[in-house]
Write a protein that binds this DNA or RNA. Structure first.
Lengths: 204, 204
DNA sequence: CTAAAAACTGAACAATCGTTCTAAAATAAT
DNA sequence: ATTATTTTAGAACGATTGTTCAGTTTTTAG
């Protein structure tokens, strides 16, 4: 790779990183291109050199986040054997590394009924479905192995997903330990609800 | 009440109603005063006659929603005896009447770390805590009556709240029946997880 | 060393934002 | 009927928005 190409790639990454954090902090609409320019030191014109427009930048950020998350989690996953452990692991990994997922704070803006941006909506649906499909796969494995009762894995996946991403909203005033406790308690509640009777888990 | 006062109150209500729906649909930032003016036929100047500013309008909407919800639910509540029934009842009532709660779609915009509006943030915290306190009261009753295991009712309330408000986010492409099924399944999962062993409920 | 290409800057654009203001219309009070 | 008050309308404001564009710097290619 060229010295020019390297530097170009670096500024593109710098823009995307700043945009991600700003979208999380302020929301999509409230984040202006000028905000991103100020945060990075990259001129507005240069931002438009690297990205088609604000919308394209957001979609790029979303795509990158999804890739990054999956890579990191697949690495973490190796240390867990049972599905139960993996579900707890996901929650922990979620809290520690992705405490602020762009979707959690930003997505709602685009699910408006009228005047909404279909391009971004489709991208969001894709991302959400990827998330849920992954959870569904995990839960199916747990059901197949007898760790959980036979059940509708898609419904369970949606509930699990809700727990993971929804808890964020009421953790804003909690510290890390309190947050982890809340998440652990939530997963426990979820698990004991779907654990089979001959599971290793017992009601305490 | 005067004919003038009545008409004035009516336009104020009309503005608040339209604002609520627009905030839900498009988010706070993306909803402009002109949008509200267009939706109601009330002039921008008149909106500012009835409300101090956009922020005051939002807080008013939030306050009204909370009052309305509580009144409606207290009416519904009468038909349920056990806490279990009441929790299911809340979910049903939630889906049918408050499918779109302003908080669910709008709140995230104001929990940004910098440059955020403290007035609205406080109002949001108040509303969220009211919600959770109410759930906590219900769960405490269930624990006291022996319907649920002894547990940290605040943690459970937060989890229940998350379930209720978070599920919304993945119900956008579901019809009413599917939504109700998902909510019922979520509450069941939640309940069987915290139900005491001598509870009337059995794992199916 | 020079020319072409890529990366980048910052001023400028029209559109839209929340808000203010002046004045007109509608109603109440006298 | 006339005055006073409340309610409404809509033009206008400065600020900010996403985006464009002409031009400058930086790097590559020949």
């Amino acid at each position: 790779m060229n010295k020019k190409q390297t530097k170009s790639m670096l500024t593109k990454k710098k823009i995307a990183d700043a945009a991600k954090h700003l979208f999380i902090q302020k929301g999509y609409t409230a984040t202006s291109i000028e905000n991103i320019s100020d945060a990075t030191g990259v001129s507005k014109g240069n931002i438009y050199y690297h990205f088609e427009n604000k919308e394209g930048l957001f979609i790029y950020v979303l795509d990158e986040w999804e890739k990054e998350w999956m890579e990191q989690w697949e690495e973490q996953k190796k240390q867990y054997s049972s599905t139960t452990e993996q579900l707890h692991g996901i929650a922990k990994h979620f809290v520690i590394n992705d405490y602020n997922h762009p979707l959690t704070n930003v997505a709602d803006e685009f699910f408006s009924h009228e005047n909404s941006n279909t391009l971004i909506q489709n991208q969001l649906y894709k991302t959400i479905n990827t998330r849920i499909s992954y959870s569904q796969k995990l839960l199916s494995e747990g059901i197949a192995s007898g760790e959980f009762k036979t059940d509708d894995s898609l419904l369970l996946a949606k509930i699990f997903d809700t727990l993971l991403y929804g808890l964020n909203n009421i953790c804003r005033d909690l510290n890390m330990k309190e947050t982890l406790d809340l998440y652990a308690k939530a997963i426990d509640t979820f698990l004991y609800g779907i654990a089979s009777d001959d599971s290793a888990h017992s009601h305490d």
